[in-house]
Amino acid sequence: MHPIQLRQSIREMLNEDIGAGDITTESLVEANHRSSAVLLAKQSGVIAGLPIVALVFQELDPHLEFQAQVAEGQKVEAYQTIAVLSGSTRAILTAERVALNLLQRMSGIATLTRQLVDQLEGLDCRVLDTRKTTPGLRQFEKYAVRTGGGTNHRFGLSHGVMLKDNHIAFAGSLENAVKKVHKRVGHMVQIEVEADTLEQVQEALSLPIHALLLDNMDVETLRKAVKMIDGKVWTEASGGITPDTIRSIAETGVNAVSVGYLTHSATALDISLDFVEEGIENHA
């Protein structure tokens, strides 16, 4: 994400939460009061988003010091300190919820992604995300996938052609759909076609495409499809992929597996912010 875009996104998130002002904090804390606090992992997982979280706090206090205690993408254990910050108490309290929401969400996605990537150790197969992201958070969630060791699929509708069943039905046939797309897009744009059956795979291979999404095929059908394709186009398996099935699906020889629940169903990692100054403790 470009720095300007990143800061704009952070400001929008803070504005949503703060509105006309943090009336609780401003009523209780003097404007010049300073504090130190720690970000503490309450469970094991992979940390993602520390540089972004630092910017959240620094948006309200440009002089706030943020010291990460772990590397981005590092796996941590429960009750491990992941960052130490020092600055305006008002800024820390006011930015806390936005910062934690982002850090917990992104770390949860990175943790789940790492679990699936580890399942494919030794195989030449990537774990892909999808566009099934939270509106407004796609850049952050896809960053978390990369931090967890996964690979990003297209970021948006303008980043590549994906011909699904509804597109093909509207065009009248797959051949018509591919022809119409080629008239519209340049040679640099990749075209991927969704196929549910071996017959659709065979038809797609006769057309000028770059990739095939093999959707909801069982392992045996996937294996036959990969053999039929024989490296002519890039292959991606999707649908019915779980931690228990992902390795057997990858072993069919597909280039990648795409997993929507990386972003739409990941559980947030439990992380807290605790003040360490005397008199201000265990703020969550």
Rank of each mutant, 00 (worst) to 15 (best):
114 R>K: 14
114 R>W: 07
116 L>M: 12
117 V>H: 06
118 D>I: 07
118 D>L: 15
119 Q>W: 01
119 Q>F: 03
122 G>C: 05
122 G>Y: 09
125 C>T: 14
125 C>V: 09
125 C>P: 02
126 R>D: 09
127 V>D: 06
127 V>I: 15
128 L>S: 01
129 D>Q: 12
130 T>V: 07
131 R>L: 12
134 T>L: 15
136 G>T: 02
136 G>A: 09
137 L>H: 04
137 L>V: 02
138 R>E: 08
139 Q>S: 12
142 K>N: 06
142 K>H: 03
143 Y>T: 03
144 A>P: 08
144 A>H: 01
144 A>S: 08
146 R>G: 03
146 R>P: 00
147 T>Q: 06
148 G>C: 08
149 G>H: 08
152 N>K: 11
153 H>T: 08
154 R>S: 02
157 L>T: 06
157 L>E: 10
158 S>R: 14
159 H>D: 15
159 H>P: 06
161 V>E: 11
162 M>S: 02
164 K>M: 01
166 N>L: 11
166 N>I: 10
168 I>A: 06
168 I>R: 14
168 I>C: 07
169 A>E: 14
171 A>V: 01
171 A>E: 07
171 A>M: 06
172 G>S: 10
172 G>N: 11
173 S>L: 12
173 S>W: 09
175 E>N: 12
175 E>D: 13
175 E>C: 10
175 E>Y: 03
178 V>G: 01
183 K>V: 01
184 R>V: 05
184 R>C: 11
185 V>T: 04
186 G>N: 09
187 H>Y: 14
188 M>H: 09
189 V>G: 01
192 E>L: 05
192 E>R: 05
194 E>Y: 08
194 E>L: 15
194 E>K: 08
194 E>M: 13
195 A>C: 10
195 A>Q: 05
201 V>W: 02
202 Q>P: 02
203 E>A: 05
204 A>W: 03
206 S>C: 11
207 L>I: 04
210 H>A: 12
210 H>M: 15
212 L>G: 00
213 L>K: 02
213 L>N: 02
215 D>H: 04
216 N>D: 03
217 M>F: 10
218 D>N: 12
220 E>R: 03
220 E>F: 08
220 E>G: 09
221 T>C: 15
224 K>G: 13
225 A>T: 10
225 A>Y: 11
225 A>V: 08
227 K>I: 05
229 I>W: 09
230 D>I: 10
232 K>Y: 06
232 K>G: 06
233 V>C: 08
239 G>A: 02
239 G>P: 05
240 G>Q: 07
240 G>M: 09
242 T>M: 07
243 P>S: 00
247 R>Q: 04
247 R>L: 07
248 S>Y: 01
248 S>N: 05
